[in-house]
Computed example of a mutant assay.
Amino acid sequence: MRSLRVPAATLLTLFALSACSGGQTAPASGGASASASATGTNRDAEVEATFAEGQGAAITYLPELVPAGATAKVTSSSGDGTSTVTLELTGLVPNRHYGAHAHTKACGAAPADSGPHFQHEKDPVTPSVDPAYANPQNEIWLDFETDAEGKATATSTVNWDFTDGAHPQSVVVHSNHTATEPGKAGTAGDRAACVTVDF
């Protein structure tokens, strides 16, 4: 199976079908459902997916941290100068800290396929570990701690919009909370899992 990348036009069609059928979202391939809407300059998206090893809309690279069968829901709303992204997860390791960020590319079979963190103002130096760029105001950080049942929710709101030419394409779950000190800012350990989202 290939990674799920749902074009914006398809997402808009799914949203229109959803509105006409009483709010039910048409399922997308790969064990995920997706919807989106656009009003003026607004960009809204939603993806629900189940993690599996290999390829798909949600891939686990470290099943000991994100087991196959765990679920993710990503919702985002962007427009009028702000963007809000919410990540909801189930089936993870209980009572554990994780990091999570929006990344520049869609998920792939290899953990690095999703590219670096998406940044509103791009750091000219790679990798970006300067707190002036690698920070929760310039990136989408969604660090979380699971509860006793392995569930968690995290939300990030930033004061800038996603655009057609500049928006993330995935959310990556990392093995640790995100560091903030110079030289390590933005790092969060191994990439444990990835969810493809057409923000």
Rank of each mutant, 00 (worst) to 15 (best):
F118M: 03
A49Y: 08
G31H: 08
G40M: 12
R43D: 01
E121S: 06
G108E: 13
R43F: 11
G81L: 11
A52G: 03
L17R: 13
P136Y: 09
A32S: 10
N42R: 10
A32Y: 04
E48L: 13
S83Q: 06
R96P: 00
Q119E: 12
A58C: 13
R96A: 11
E48M: 10
T75L: 08
S83M: 05
A110G: 01
G30Y: 03
S18E: 13
A109I: 12
A109L: 12
S21F: 04
Y98A: 07
A34R: 03
R96Q: 13
P94A: 08
Y98F: 15
G99R: 01
E88T: 15
V129M: 07
G99F: 09
G40L: 10
T82E: 07
S33N: 14
F51E: 04
A134H: 10
Q24K: 14
A38T: 14
T25D: 10
T71F: 00
P94T: 04
L89M: 13
G40V: 12
A134D: 05
P63M: 13
A28V: 14
A45V: 00
H117P: 00
K122E: 11
S37M: 11
E88H: 06
A49K: 12
A72H: 01
Y133K: 07
S114L: 05
D80F: 10
V74N: 02
A36D: 03
A72R: 01
N135R: 15
Q55I: 02
P27K: 15
C107V: 03
L65M: 12
T71V: 02
T104D: 04
A19T: 09
G91H: 01
A70P: 00
N42E: 08
G108V: 14
A109T: 14
P116A: 13
A72C: 01
C20M: 09
T25V: 15
D130G: 10
A45E: 00
N95K: 07
G108Q: 13
I59N: 02
A45F: 02
A112Q: 08
A106F: 13
G30W: 00
P124E: 06
A16N: 03
